[in-house]
């Protein structure tokens, strides 16, 4: 059974309809890449999954549990919402690390506040995660002392510390210099190798092609084409063709 089912998601801001019926499913351990031109609604889709926005129509089902249903007119309570958000993790384009905390504290803050274990356990897990993203030497540094690539890797460790079922990335490398992009993509690839379920919004076509199990091409608020990464080699729709030629 699919770990994630997204059904007929619609979302408008005022009069502009940004998402016009998005449907897809994702299996456990799969990596989904979402590509598409600017303004096609990719960020909005991730924000709906993470309950930062609420869709106007549609359902989101995670592991058989409906975490969002637009037909139920009751706004979830804050604690319900927090519970639902924990199914997902989100890595932002501009990292959004907490500047006043060290690397270690950035990773341990949420698990400690949410009492996900004893402080020793949490710190142990955090140290392992930080090591796995290659920043063992930086645990006591502050975000302002790190490069963009290093900050993004901390952000990934921070998201992983809450053990989300599905980890979302919103253009994780597009705020980075090209030479720093590789180190972040390597970390994401290593997660894929460990069968982490992930949704990656990206403009890195090589990455989408080589790492993902599934690719969705969004255009104008709809999924214009989806399938195996091979659709990037042999696009069916004209829109995907012209999108790819722009790279």
């Amino acid at each position: 059974m699919a770990i994630l089912e997204v059904k007929n998601i619609h979302k408008s801001f005022g009069r502009t309809e940004v998402l016009k019926g998005i449907d897809f499913t994702l299996e456990k351990g799969e990596v989904l890449s979402i590509i598409g031109s600017s303004g096609s609604g990719k960020t909005t889709l991730l924000r709906c999954l993470n309950s930062l926005e609420f869709a106007d129509k549609g359902q989101i089902v995670v592991g058989g549990e409906t975490i969002f249903d637009a037909d139920i007119n009751k706004r979830p309570s804050e604690s319900e919402l927090r519970q639902k958000r924990l199914h997902f993790g989100l890595v932002f384009q501009n990292f959004n690390l907490f500047p006043q905390y060290s690397v270690l504290d950035n990773v341990t803050l949420a698990p400690k506040l949410l009492k996900k274990g004893t402080n020793e356990e949490i710190e142990q897990t955090a140290l392992e995660l930080i090591e796995s993203v290659g920043l063992k030497e930086k645990i006591n540094n502050y975000p302002c002392e790190l490069s963009g690539g290093q900050q993004q890797r901390v952000a990934i460790a921070r998201a992983l510390a809450l053990k989300p079922e599905i980890l979302c990335f919103d253009e994780p490398t597009s705020a980075l210099d090209p030479e720093l992009t590789g180190e972040v993509l390597k970390v994401i690839k290593s997660l894929a190798d460990k069968h982490m379920t992930m949704i990656v919004v990206t403009h890195e076509m090589t990455f989408a092609h080589d790492v993902s199990d599934k690719v969705i091409f969004m255009d104008g608020g709809v999924i214009a084409e989806q399938g195996a990464p091979s659709i990037l080699d042999h696009p069916e729709s004209e829109r995907l063709q012209s999108f790819l030629t722009s790279f």
């Binding site: 993470n50 958000r85 997902f88 959004n96 907490f98 500047p99 006043q100 949420a110 998201a159 809450l162």
Partner: peptide, 25 residues
């Protein structure tokens, strides 16, 4: 706003976000 949202996606409550994330900044 990203600081607030980072707190939200980490499952923090409003008051935790205020006191632990944004207040110091």
């Amino acid at each position: 706003i990203g600081q607030h949202e980072a707190g939200q996606v980490l499952g923090l409550s409003k008051s935790q976000i205020f006191f632990k994330v944004t207040l110091m900044q």
